[in-house]
């Protein structure tokens, strides 16, 4: 099932939702939304052909600031609910969004299993290194000792380098960008949409209110695009793992790793001969033969 009217090219304004944004001035989410819309327009995917699944958090509050078939679901669960929808109808573009809290704290298991399962969806991981919507508590991406809300001495736990974590799971696509670079975000989101498999795009995100440590200017001085490196091989997992480690001095961005290996659905033996999507197949099942086995 898919909206078939693709005669008209998709425009940026098609995604316009009149609801007033509720993010802080200079929040990284503005840039991410702009890049997301640009990528969808560039891929000529209309809102009616998009399913978006938002987590709880500041990024989730963008669910009604854009168009598309959206679900603003439960904390930590954007990935599995998006996967369920995708498996039912692969003709639509499925995108899930979650913050560092949703992806590395509450719902970390889903991220792990989605990577190893190769579901063909795009996951945009908003990493602002804190729980911003609840006013700035530590997440597992918050640096050890960084003073924050409800943690006057800073967390004593070691922090997780999200991209290193993702690359340790042997993904088929992993990209990183930062919310100050709309062009690069657009490019990596487009690459993620095109990749057949589970595409993770980590976006290091400015949080002007609760993360005073690493703002846009801080990132701007440190990031570099791996595609600009003469000898970077994005199919080399070890190289990606090495380059992803540095979060202090020189921060690698762009598509760090991509190696297609077929997605989950296409590997299902019992679905090989089906030309239809699960949404198109709902009708009374044929149980006659199945019942015969029990006589």
């Amino acid at each position: 099932m898919m909206n078939t009217d693709n005669s008209k090219p998709v425009e940026f304004s098609d995604y316009y939702n009149p609801n007033i944004y509720t993010w802080c001035t200079n929040c990284g989410n503005y840039g991410i939304h702009a890049a997301l819309k640009r990528a969808l327009v560039a891929e000529n995917i209309s809102p009616g052909n998009t399913m978006m699944f938002f987590d709880i958090g500041c990024n989730g509050n963008g669910s009604d600031k854009i168009l598309g078939y959206r679900m603003h679901g439960l904390h930590g669960r954007a990935i599995p609910v998006a996967v369920g929808a995708h498996l039912a109808n692969r003709k639509l573009q499925t995108i899930a969004f979650g913050g560092d809290g949703a992806s590395l704290n509450e719902g970390v298991n889903h991220l792990v299993h989605a990577i190893r399962s190769d579901y063909n969806i795009l996951f945009i991981l908003h990493n602002n290194e804190n729980f911003a919507l609840t006013k700035g508590q530590a997440s597992s991406a918050t640096e050890t000792g960084r003073v924050c809300d409800a943690c006057p001495d800073g967390p004593v736990e070691s922090s997780i380098n999200i991209m290193s974590f993702i690359l340790a799971m042997n993904p088929s696509f992993a990209a990183r960008s930062f919310s100050g670079d709309i062009h690069q975000m657009t490019d990596v989101i487009r690459a993620g949409i095109r990749h057949q498999g589970f595409s993770v795009v980590e976006i290091m995100q400015n949080c002007p209110t609760y993360n005073r440590y690493s703002g846009h200017e801080w990132y701007q001085k440190r990031v570099y695009d791996v595609t600009k490196l003469a000898d970077y091989d994005k199919t080399d997992l070890k190289a990606a793992q090495n380059i992803a480690q540095d979060l202090k001095e020189k921060i690698a961005t762009g598509v760090l790793y991509e190696k297609p290996r077929g997605d989950f659905y296409s590997k299902l033996v019992n679905r090989k001969d089906y030309k239809t999507e699960l949404v198109e197949e709902v009708k009374a099942g044929e149980i006659g033969k199945l019942m015969e086995a029990f006589r």
Partner: peptide, 25 residues
């Protein structure tokens, strides 16, 4: 031809279910 997925936990199983129902199967 039913798509069967043994999920990583029950939370995932039910989220996959509601996702598929949302999409319309």
């Amino acid at each position: 031809g039913i798509l069967v997925k043994q999920a990583e936990d029950e939370i995932t199983a039910v989220q996959l279910t509601i996702g598929s129902m949302f999409a319309g199967t």
